[in-house]
Design a protein around this nucleic acid. Structure first.
Lengths: 157, 157
DNA sequence: CTCGTTGCAAAGGATTTGCACAAGT
DNA sequence: ACTTGTGCAAATCCTTTGCAACGAG
């Protein structure tokens, strides 16, 4: 902690650079997967694959499912994307950009993004108490959204 | 919010009562699964099943895997257990008892339980802002524990 | 040209479901 | 007895892996 250069740059971590630095290769697939993750706010591997198929059209070839998984894992290791487990099913991926907090309704599954500073106080407390560093990008708060709370109040009086 | 009767009773929600109230039946399997969840602090469905097998011994019959899953779902709906997704793998279940917050290290997987009041401020903020009710029992904070933070500092200077 | 990457297809693990029988009330 | 719960086995869903061909540097 000694002053970050910039709050958040235009395209923060240069994909190509990250790859070259590690002797890895910049492929169309990797660019497309990353783009898809950014485009879909919260996408499961399956949804990301589906989107890539849609973008590719009938004749254009989309990355294979296995490639999507492999690429997501890679991108995560490069720090370009993060994943979170929201419900029972598949994890959702989101671009690392500026960190944000996920809030998920257990009933309807709706996802909201919240200002991460919401947890700053708690995070500092954990750091001071346990030396534990909270990774805000990974955090998801579960609960019940307003709509579902009212709905269940109506259905079960 | 008008004063809770007691901070936490000896055996808060009576399993049998919960079942009878809904016309459901009290079976050995259900009692055993609940007991196993309590015994294992944080158990995956698989681990819970394994423990039941072990408890049953060579000749005693343990609940089937599918029964474990069905029962966990039921117990959760009854409010007796909660599940949380810690890593990529399976969800972990824990007895509902008094609520506590889970803090998980992404590297070593170690789980710590923290005072849930840590999130009270954030929870109230969400309630006021979005009408969203945070379910503290479900929440898991991911990050890096002190040990792992120091370890990676040593290995990559 | 060399080595990382991809596609394909099959394997693997985890969770769910249909149905007939066993068990709780 | 009546209805719910369980065991069994097959079906699904999600993810991973081996290997030959392909493409970036």
């Amino acid at each position: 902690m000694s002053g970050e250069p910039a709050p958040h740059e235009p395209d923060a971590p240069p994909l190509a650079a990250q790859l070259r630095a590690r002797g890895l290769r910049l492929t169309t697939q990797r660019q497309r997967v990353l783009a898809a993750v950014s485009a879909l706010e919260h996408g499961t591997p399956e949804e990301i694959g589906a989107r890539l198929r849609a973008e590719a059209g009938p004749d254009g070839a989309a990355p294979d499912t296995s490639t999507v998984y492999r690429t997501l894992e890679l991108l995560e290791r490069l720090g370009l994307v993060w994943h979170t487990h929201l419900g029972k099913g598949a994890p959702v991926y989101h671009a690392a950009e500026h960190p944000h907090l996920h809030v998920v309704c257990q009933e309807c599954g709706q996802i909201s993004s919240v200002d991460p500073t919401l947890l700053d106080a708690a995070a500092e407390r954990l750091a001071a108490d346990l030396g534990f560093t909270v990774d805000v990008g990974h955090v998801a708060l579960s609960g019940t959204c307003r709509a579902c709370a009212e709905k269940s109040r109506t259905e079960q009086p």
